[in-house]
Simulated assay, not measured.
Amino acid sequence: MTSPSAGPLTLTQLPLFPLHTVLFPGGVLPLKIFEVRYLDMIGRCQQLGAPFGVVTLTEGEEVRRRAPSAQGAEPGFVREGFHPVGVLARIEKLEKPQAGLYLVQCRGLQRFHINRREQLPHGLWTADVTLDPPEPNLPVPDHLLPARQTLERVVEGLAQQGTPDTHPVPTPHQWDDCAWLANRWAELLPLPLEMKYRLMSLDSPVLRLELVADLLDRMGLQD
């Protein structure tokens, strides 16, 4: 991976993990790794202390599969497609319960935009990407405070159930940060994958939180 000394930060040959999920900055993503292409990727990232990129699938499956072939034709693989905006993931925990299996916990970092992508012979995708700057810490406006207060009640209720280490709202809590609050709600709400992706890819944290607050109102989830 390389980066220029000035201008937007870029990474070359960033390994990608296309998934049927959306990783948000600050979010926690558990993964069960058993495909050779990803065992190798995770092993290298862990060894180098380097991130990988999580992108959202638009076509194909998470596990590489053979495609039906015409009679006499060489079998190929099912096509994989994914959105052009993703999020860097940093490995926080890695366990090896048995040969050929990794249990990994990752944390979302900052967003990136794909400039060029390539699939290697063994199936791993890599890309040259431009990193977005970290999202600014913007205080929650007064008209969006109900979204914060509702999430605080959700977290308090989960803590009372005795599951503070396993509930889906990662720590540290940043209640007065628009981006953090919007991202955590977008993870929790039962939204279509495409809508989650559109929320993640929005540049404005305040707009993202406003859209989330509108969804909460429509669902009757906040006062």
Score class of each variant (00 low, 15 high):
35 E>P: 07
173 H>C: 05
199 L>M: 00
175 W>I: 06
101 L>M: 10
46 Q>N: 09
52 F>I: 01
113 H>D: 03
54 V>F: 00
146 P>Q: 14
5 S>M: 08
199 L>F: 09
142 D>P: 02
133 P>F: 01
144 L>D: 07
55 V>Y: 06
61 E>V: 14
10 T>Y: 04
27 G>K: 03
58 T>S: 14
86 G>D: 05
87 V>Q: 01
120 L>G: 04
46 Q>L: 13
132 D>E: 11
146 P>S: 08
119 Q>W: 01
114 I>T: 09
39 L>H: 03
47 Q>L: 13
194 E>R: 12
209 L>V: 09
39 L>P: 05
138 L>G: 02
107 R>Y: 14
10 T>I: 07
22 V>Y: 10
190 P>Y: 06
209 L>W: 02
16 L>E: 02
93 K>S: 14
3 S>D: 10
34 F>H: 01
151 L>H: 05
101 L>H: 02
199 L>C: 08
145 L>N: 03
113 H>W: 02
158 L>D: 04
159 A>C: 09
131 L>N: 06
44 R>P: 01
85 V>L: 06
141 P>N: 04
94 L>M: 06
169 V>G: 06
177 D>E: 05
139 P>R: 11
41 M>I: 10
125 W>L: 00
181 L>P: 01
75 P>T: 09
206 V>D: 04
140 V>N: 07
104 V>N: 02
55 V>R: 00
27 G>L: 08
144 L>V: 11
6 A>G: 06
160 Q>G: 13
23 L>C: 07
149 Q>N: 15
138 L>P: 03
59 E>Q: 13
146 P>Y: 10
3 S>P: 04
221 L>K: 15
181 L>N: 07
118 E>K: 13
42 I>K: 00
59 E>I: 04
216 L>D: 03
172 P>E: 08
3 S>H: 12
177 D>F: 07
180 W>D: 00
2 T>Y: 08
54 V>K: 00
24 F>R: 07
209 L>M: 07
201 S>E: 10
144 L>G: 01
79 R>Y: 13
85 V>P: 03
118 E>Y: 12
127 A>R: 06
107 R>H: 12
47 Q>D: 08
131 L>K: 07
196 K>Q: 11
191 L>V: 06
25 P>D: 12
90 R>N: 05
128 D>L: 05
46 Q>E: 15
165 D>A: 15
221 L>D: 02
145 L>C: 15
55 V>F: 00
169 V>M: 09
44 R>D: 09
12 T>S: 00
221 L>R: 11
10 T>P: 00
196 K>P: 02
109 L>Q: 12
204 S>K: 13
88 L>W: 06
83 H>R: 14
106 C>F: 03
129 V>I: 05
121 P>Q: 10
162 G>P: 05
70 A>R: 15
157 G>T: 01
43 G>L: 12
183 N>Y: 09
221 L>G: 02
206 V>Q: 01
132 D>L: 15
140 V>F: 04
166 T>F: 11
79 R>P: 02
6 A>E: 05
125 W>H: 00
